[in-house]
Amino acid sequence: MEFQSCVKIINEWDIVAARQLGRNVAKELGFGTVDQARITTAISELARNIYLYAGQGKVCIEKLYEGGKSGLLIIASDEGPGIPDVRKVMEDGFSTSGGLGAGLPGVKRLMDEFDLDTTIGKGTEIRAIKWLR
């Protein structure tokens, strides 16, 4: 496994800490300003979802090197209630909290790869990758 670092998400300011971590790693990998913004925004969405719906969890950032290309992996995991209907939450505009419901489908569009794994009563883990072009 390549270098990984994590931020625990417990309060709202941890979201900012997670974003900062992501931005630093993205810079180190050589991502441009637009991709840096995409990555930090995606982290912000995932971290805020943890804070809002699971209470607490963590966001880890990992550098990936695969077959000559490098990328950044975000792993957002929690032991919250889980997501009952994965298809629904991936639709634009679905929200149980009166939000815009743009977070999860937005993250999928902001990043290159997106993978959601959830179990009711056990928690949720979301992995998203941005490849450096």
Binding site: V34, Q36, A37, T41, A102, G106, L110
Partner: peptide, 13 residues
């Protein structure tokens, strides 16, 4: 900013 405009579009807002 341009990069913010792009992320807003990506988010579908």
């Amino acid at each position: 900013r341009p990069e913010i405009a792009q992320t807003i579009v990506n988010l579908g807002i």
